[in-house]
Design a protein around this nucleic acid. Sequence first.
DNA 1: ATATGTTTGAAACGTTTGTTTGTATGCGCC
DNA 2: GGCGCATACAAACAAACGTTTCAAACATAT
Lengths: 208, 208
Amino acid sequence: MAAQSGTVERILDTAEVLFAEKGFAETSLRAITSKAGVNLAAVNYHFGSKEALIQAIFERFLAPFCAELGASMAQLAADGETVDLERLLRMMSRTALGAHGSSPERLALFFRLSGLAYTQAQGHLRRFIRERYGDVFNRFLMLLAKAVPDVPPLELFWRVHFGLGATVFAMSSMDSLRALCKSDFDTDLSAADVTQRLLPFIVGGIRA
Amino acid sequence: MAAQSGTVERILDTAEVLFAEKGFAETSLRAITSKAGVNLAAVNYHFGSKEALIQAIFERFLAPFCAELGASMAQLAADGETVDLERLLRMMSRTALGAHGSSPERLALFFRLSGLAYTQAQGHLRRFIRERYGDVFNRFLMLLAKAVPDVPPLELFWRVHFGLGATVFAMSSMDSLRALCKSDFDTDLSAADVTQRLLPFIVGGIRA
DNA sequence: ATATGTTTGAAACGTTTGTTTGTATGCGCC
DNA sequence: GGCGCATACAAACAAACGTTTCAAACATAT
């Protein structure tokens, strides 16, 4: 098995960028393999199908992230601290960022893929993610409910998803928004800057 | 011209539903035309191409909406009232809803299409919308800036887009979220209910 | 060195895609 | 009636798609 010159990783690296740029259906296996410098058949050989390749990309993102998130939450529970909303969201943000080399660009790429997965059909992906990582997210939601006891659970449910939407959307169209921001305000914001501005918005929205 | 039994409208009606359900690339012209009960060639005959069909769908949504929004803003300017943030957003919401038979479901469908247009490639669509309706939206943004003078313009820019993201996302995945809400809380919310909950979130987020 | 199992390579598979073509049909007008 | 025009239709088009095939190349272990 050892011999492989990184074909699998090259496919994953290339595919996640192309998918994020053009969408899943719009990106052909031929575009991926030719840019990655591997044979066309390699995708079906190593992953089985295009669908499975997409799932593999999400798994590579989610596995380390959920592991770290679970650890962070366990530590938080052990400390027995009072859970503050802002601190909780900041922990989530830090964990998400830290799970992949602290690159805001890569985090934005992942959110863009998530946005694609949600808006595009990709029913298989939603099922895949829910089955695989639903528990960790539910645990985080419970922690969140404790942080804002004055917001009724039903209301919180929707506000969390509103906040998630704001995040996904902002990250998805990060590049065009930053370009727009530069042309309208002559201000060049980094991806990290945007993330920092996003947090107060969500906190304000959830607290209402 | 009279003879036509609504071929163009039947194509538009069918296409917007199918596109919203499965995405643009995932929906074939054959699926559209066969479900609409028209000939395959009718799309290329009446619209010129699949791309042009997509643009026509957005135009049918945006044209009456922007017209009404422009009128509402003109009236607001004529009244010379103090512009309140919540009232401004409510006006936008009411206008959007009223522009198409007051059907929250149809509004949700439009937002879902918008979400697709943003996340999916569809660069041509973004350019098309901006060129055609950019002015109206910019005027609305200026009104918004007057409503929250204590939020600096740059900050407002981002918060507006965060709010837009929350809206697009919530509307896009309205159906799945409502199903989730029902299974988790035994509560059956209507699309109008969700919209009502969305507004305070955005107001809270923009005010921070 | 030979055998074994894994990975690559080029080519072809059968489908499906958007689009085009040529013809038929229905209508108003001279 | 006959002409002209807009629409509808079935059929075909070339291109692109995901996937499969099978032989060649490779590494490893005996």
